[in-house]
Design a protein around this nucleic acid. Structure first.
Lengths: 346, 346
DNA sequence: CCCGGCGGCGAGAGCGCTCTCGCCGCGTGC
DNA sequence: GCACGCGGCGAGAGCGCTCTCGCCGCCGGG
């Protein structure tokens, strides 16, 4: 009882079914070339013994692991605390398990971790990697690229993704920003301010670009940089109100900053949306619904993003694909659509 | 170039250093019994060739994987969307990587997934499991227990944890609830209502028990069941106001419900905290800080909880421990302290 | 009726590692 | 000075699987 029953091996199944190991292997892996009466006998033996293949032994010879690393480079608690991460993971997980792949999670915070991650990837424990790295000075993408593993990035990487066939999935930040600003225009507002996110992240840059697309040559006084936190949104809003008391609307780079902006507006006696209309980004629940008033915002399908990343990666891992020449086949960057969600704030 | 360089094997390192495989193995794994001049030669060979051990081959013989499964049973999007999950994972990840263990993430939603998880665990790909399963009717804990893997649960399991040495880590929900209610009493409020969480979860039950500990024999009209969502908090608050318009304070089972309650109170023209004081639970950021007014709440160190779970599990995995007799050694349930965070709502 | 072909199955050689065992050389005790 | 012991190192046997190869039996064609 204290000796846990030794797990049955292929050998044991073969013996019980009265066939060779090779035949059992064929049946277990669904290869054809085994005729029915025999195959059935093997399947019964597998059931009776409760046989489960030893993945280590299998990997040793196939050099596949059916496992994918998900690497999240997040030194800051902020992003970690938001629900995005969980949703993306969920999407990734669904897609991976649908294809019998495991998800190995690597969270990194500092430089030391980078070495560890690099070593892990070089160790060949996984077949590919999904990488979330937001900041411009992050050495991680380089390290990973060097490891030579098939990789898909979450969010457009900095080094001009698409260039050398770097695969990534991103939301349509720029288009979403345009939608948001156009919506404000359609409300009859013309003096529209923008609170940017942390501009060392492509998402923030793209949203700013979208804002500029529509506002063509906006008053610099109407743009203030934030860092995606509520506190920064509040501060930025005060700044903006000081510079342009006549502003009629704000497009915040995310919902958290929008929430902060709402507080500053309330503090300054501005009514939302009557005096100032506010639009956020992300549709970050439950924040976006809980603010006063609830936020009009740009929703991205974050779970789908995860799913898509996984799908792209798995496609690269298929035996057909050339191992090194990942470029060329298929799109290197995929951009997911967004939708404007109208609530009370604009 | 298109042929990725074949990874060097132990054999190759041995050849280069002019020693046997066994000696290289000893050096690589830090066993002693290799004298200095030789050991140094081996280390140099390892460096020069960039040797990284093949984990699959190693696992095959050691039957260890240095990997732990984290299983999250979460059919509902709700909990998934909250930041807890990410924080816990972070704590777990830190502890695991500190001990060179990998984190394999398994997310389950429906019954089909259970079978898959059970199969995976039975497959012996991981050395242990950390399990988050909230609901009373979840068959997962049973399945996992049956797999015979060392396991630590996040949150007190339903089947009377501690009974047969089931290991778990939980927050002091009951004590935290007592603190919250006592705080309200200290504010001079006596007609205190409670909005419970979903009572099929032990955390909700324990918080209710804590409420009752202090309020000894409370008016049933002052207790209303919610389900941890903001909407349920709002509804429950309306209900309570209808039944007991004279209530002076509310202890909500979590911050989300507290946020909902705030809305209902505002809608009914009650000022917070002047007319009605509100206390939440979790200190779920950024929600708790963003409400109007910001929430007084009970904070739990969720990251520490994850870290502790991992630590407990790793201890069980140490070679010293008897593989099956996990009971007996050390505490089977660990309860983490909480702290009351005072903000404006109470 | 004989021969070639083909498809089903078994034999066996590894994949890269760990770990036991035994050998050998050195130091120590009498 | 000799036997004994002990510690350092190498040889070799697997761990459980996949996959190539070759054998054998069955079929069809000449």
């Amino acid at each position: 009882m204290s000796e846990s029953a030794p797990r049955p091996t292929l050998e044991a199944v073969a013996a019980r079914a009265g066939v060779s190991r090779a035949t059992v292997s064929r049946v277990v892996n669904g290869f054809d070339g085994v005729r029915e009466p025999l195959a059935e006998r093997v399947r019964r033996a597998v059931d009776e013994l409760g046989y489960v293949p030893n993945q280590a032994a299998r990997s040793l010879v196939t050099r596949r692991h059916d496992a994918v690393a998900v690497i999240v480079a997040e030194p800051e608690t902020r992003v970690f605390a938001d629900p995005f991460f969980a949703r993306q993971l969920r999407g990734i997980s669904k897609e991976l398990t649908a294809h019998d792949n495991q998800l190995v999670l690597l969270l990194t915070e500092d430089r030391d971790d980078h070495a560890r991650v690099a070593r892990y990837l070089a160790g060949g424990h996984v077949d590919g990697a999904l990488v979330f790295s937001l900041h411009i000075d992050d050495p991680l993408p380089g390290l990973i690229q060097r490891a030579g593993l098939p990789t898909v990035f979450g969010g457009r990487p900095h080094w001009n993704g698409g260039e050398d066939g770097v695969r990534y999935v991103d939301t349509d930040n720029r288009g979403g920003a345009r939608d948001a600003v156009r919506h404000l225009l359609s409300l009859g507002r013309s003096r529209i301010a923008h609170i940017t996110g942390a501009l060392d992240q492509t998402s923030a840059v793209d949203r700013l670009d979208g804002f500029r697309d529509v506002m063509a040559d906006p008053d610099p006084a109407l743009v203030e940089e934030g860092d995606f936190t509520a506190a920064s949104g509040e501060r930025a809003m005060r700044e903006l109100l000081g510079r342009r008391p006549d502003l009629e609307a704000v497009f915040a780079g995310n919902d958290l900053m929008a929430a902060g902006a709402l507080r500053a507006l309330r503090e300054h006696g501005r009514r939302v949306p009557d005096d100032v209309a506010v639009v956020g980004f992300d549709d970050m629940l439950p924040i976006a619904e809980q603010t006063e008033p609830p936020l009009t915002t740009v929703r991205q399908d974050i779970e789908e993003m995860g799913r898509l990343m996984a799908r792209l990666l798995l496609r690269d891992l298929e035996p057909g694909t050339a191992p090194d020449e990942t470029a060329g086949a298929g799109p290197s960057g995929v951009v997911l659509p967004v939708t404007l969600v109208r609530r009370a704030s604009a």
